[in-house]
Design a binder for these strands. Structure first.
Lengths: 217, 217, 217, 217
DNA sequence: GATGAATGAGCCTTCATTCAT
DNA sequence: AATGAATGAAGGCTCATTCAT
């Protein structure tokens, strides 16, 4: 009896270890892939930054591509969860729009690894993304939130009614992604440190101004 | 005398050949680097798509990195030349602003290879860009053009006076770069073909609206 | 009592399951080893073609080599049993000799897997065969049958008396093994399909002719 | 002038080195493949037994399979050359037939590596052999020699006229290949050392007897 | 008796680069 | 100026096997 309980515990413990190993691998891989790109990333390096061995990458993910796919999926999933945490129904339409823009802005700044990963994936023409079934219509949450706000604004007459939510989302995304994804080259060419707190703060406000300016009736 | 002339001709011919070889390598390398990224690009593949051999890459550019640097420099130089061709002083400030936005938009759409190259460079934190002396303050032309227009607009009262030209440039760049650089992932997630002519046309108009909306007094 | 009976039944059932599992592994392994050779055979593949797991190979046979040894032993044992089924004492010596040759011929054609296995073992210099105690003087049955016929023939004056039974067996074996073991290369080089029914039939008759021709007084 | 000559010499020297390296690789690979089979052979081991490095295998042969193909081709080519050295037109048909059998016998005994290679290739169903264009109708020489002798014998009435040369070749090949290819297992099962000089001598004579016995009118 | 999880060692291959005229 | 031959170092992956119940 004691033994049974004991092995049950041990078994659970191992499962937890397995899960932890998988998670660690995923975390490190996210870093490495976003730092070096897909081809630049080295399976050896990923393993070395971990407590496990390279062998486990093949055991858990089947190979380098499988690991990359898993990284991609996990990253997008995290984003979706964050987006689902957004709420703006308690705010007036104009404020809500600014709020969404600003929170999206912050979210991008706070997750540069994800943004870089998206860049990497785009370099490869999104060929991997298409393979991950679970990522089909992942875009919906963010857009439907905007959709609601735009509808409220149109009803109240505070926001113009001829703008598509996806277009608004694209404007916000463009601006936010650029901050992070092109920080290096834009910063170099125009001598502007995109990540400096005061710069970030100004850019954040500007984005709000632009979006509100565009959508206000 | 005849001989001298003869060898002078031969020498010139050779130089022209050399120049052609260099140019061909550069052209092919631009393609390959922008398609596969820095690490993903294969020196062998670049050479194979050329009439020369791999050895010439080392002869002319010193190595893979040297070739990439040369590609980067040539690409940025071409962009600058294009920007210097922009003229808007014959237009009213509001029209000029829209014009600049739209031409920038077209320019990005028409040079996806360059945009991808910039993405690649950002993946590597712009570490190569910084090495190319000749690219210091390459940003100036585009911004000074905007600066002029903003000044004219402020003077005439048609444009607001509290906006920085670099911020305007960043807004335009963000939007335009996103169109090309993130076409794959955004297209996948929102089922929108960013390169389709009608979509492109709508996005182009929207950008103009946003910029004009933001800057109008 | 009921319980004891119950567990006895269960135990038997389990043994039967165990035997079935062992047998299945052996059967599949015979196929795989004869198709791919010793090194070419994959423990994973053998297990996958089975209802059990790879782990069982280690449980029942100790490892890849143990499994191979078991395959070898089982294969040779089956052959011996087949040879013991041969009877020729009711035939006249000359007919008996032809009969043995033809039956051996058929047996080889009908068990290509075994012949291939022998090839595999020879590639490895018979190093495994020597380890299987139970296979010592496995050759006896076939040869002693020939011995009897040769003795009868010598006595009756129908067969020459200066030929060793092992030499006869070797001639027959050579010819029969070659049909199967070298079908691919010989067939390729001479454009002859060794396994086609009519070719097989002719070869069979030729073998009989050769053996009878050699041994006839 | 001196320099030119000097570099011409050096260049030739290098080519000779290259040729030697290639040849050495081929020789060692022939050994290793025939000893361990295709899958069992290790690229590392082949390289280690050489003065060059593993890298050269890829440089010269493209990979493991390319090396194996080259080994196969070279081996068969050598055999063909040996067969073309056979001459029997100065002997009476019966003697010629025995001569061919005996020389073939010796040739097999003296080139066990080749025989083993053929076994290896048959384990893989001759799938590589078929890829080597240059080995199409390689069988011809040996058979046409036999064809001539058989024709002479038929004309003189010394040999029977109803036997196909390929069938004769197959008989001889079967017997000779078996000596070498199955030496291990046959030797083990019947306690006979196939490679012992006296055994070899007896087998040689027996083959001659069998062939002559079969073909004599 | 039976098993899922984990793994060390080694495999084949490819990369960017240099040698030697 | 131009080049064919050669190569060291590392890369991704797969093998048979053992651990720990």
């Amino acid at each position: 009896m004691v033994d049974t309980q004991h092995s049950a515990e041990k078994s659970e413990e191992r499962l937890r270890d397995a899960e932890r190993t998988r998670a660690e691998l995923l975390e490190v891989a996210t870093e490495v892939f976003s730092e070096q790109g897909y081809s630049g990333a080295r399976v050896d390096e990923i393993a070395e930054r971990t407590r496990t061995t390279k062998r486990m990458i093949y055991y858990y993910f089947g190979g380098k591509e499988g690991l990359y796919l898993a990284v991609l999926e996990a990253a997008y999933r995290r984003i979706r969860e964050a987006e689902q945490g957004l709420h703006a129904d308690h705010l007036a339409p104009v404020d809500a729009v600014r709020r969404i823009a600003e929170l999206t802005f912050d979210h991008h700044h706070d997750h540069p690894g994800f943004i870089r990963l998206v860049s990497v994936e785009n370099i490869h023409n999104g060929q991997h993304l298409g393979k991950v079934e679970s990522l089909r219509d992942l875009g919906t949450p963010a857009v439907s939130l905007l959709d609601d706000v735009l509808a409220r604004g149109r009803a109240s007459g505070e926001l113009r009614g001829d703008v598509d939510a996806v277009d608004v989302h694209m404007l916000i995304s463009s601006y936010c992604v650029f901050q992070v994804a092109n920080a290096a080259t834009f910063g170099f060419l125009f001598g502007r440190d995109m990540l400096a707190p005061d710069v970030r703060e100004r850019h954040r406000r500007i984005l709000g101004d632009i979006v509100v300016g565009w959508l206000s009736a």
